[in-house]
Amino acid sequence: MLELAGVTKRFGGVAALSNVSFTVAEGEILGLIGPNGAGKTTLLNCISGVYRLDGGSITFDGRRLDGLPPHQVARLGIGRTFQVVKPFASMTVRENAAVGALFGSGQAHLAPKAAFSWADEVLELVGLARKARLTVGSLTIPDRKRLEVARALATKPRLLLLDEVMAGLNPVEVDEALDMVRKVHAGGITIVLIEHVMRVVVGVCDRVIVLHMGQHLAEGTPDEVLQDRRVIEAYLGEKYAARRHG
């Protein structure tokens, strides 16, 4: 479905991503893990068109994505959230989601009324329906993360890129968020998620890719990757490995 080949992105002299290649198959949940600064968010920015590549190519269903502006990538059916939430602060929760519905993939001529009813469905799915008429300012952090997901879902994506939607949530909230991800996935949406919470990665991911210093370090099922010596050295640490096996 999505294919990255030799993706390279430099900021000045620093190579944030060098020669990263992998594919995402339709229907899977792919985890993207790695230490801070590994290039995970940069990779999402490259896919969604926020950054231009310095090398390599990205194709989505056979169409080249690199070089396209973000709005065209969105309309092809790729939705994303931001690690640091970026809500439309003066709008209500419902209006936030409606913007996604109004402009997303294949929605070019959706009338505002239809967009709002689709927004309501999406808010129901992520559990924000009761707060639809509140402004964003009165939402808690977990709710703001849900709103990010709702807005991206409202664009009717076929591929959803989630950037640390569970960071900063307490264990109960993480469970709720996991449920939400499973529900979204059950709706037929392919998911790529960046996550530091290993419980999430093991819990929902079919496959995991580890990035380290802008490079593709390892790839495999969650169990394989978490036992990989290189991954333990670069990211998880000996204590984590000991705990898992101890």
Partner: peptide, 21 residues
């Protein structure tokens, strides 16, 4: 739709663009 797009740009241009504006 045009107006919602404009307000979305005002509130957060990057978020607006990845939603398809």
């Amino acid at each position: 739709r045009f107006g919602y797009g404009l307000i979305a740009i005002r509130e957060n241009e990057e978020a607006a663009s990845v939603l398809g504006v």
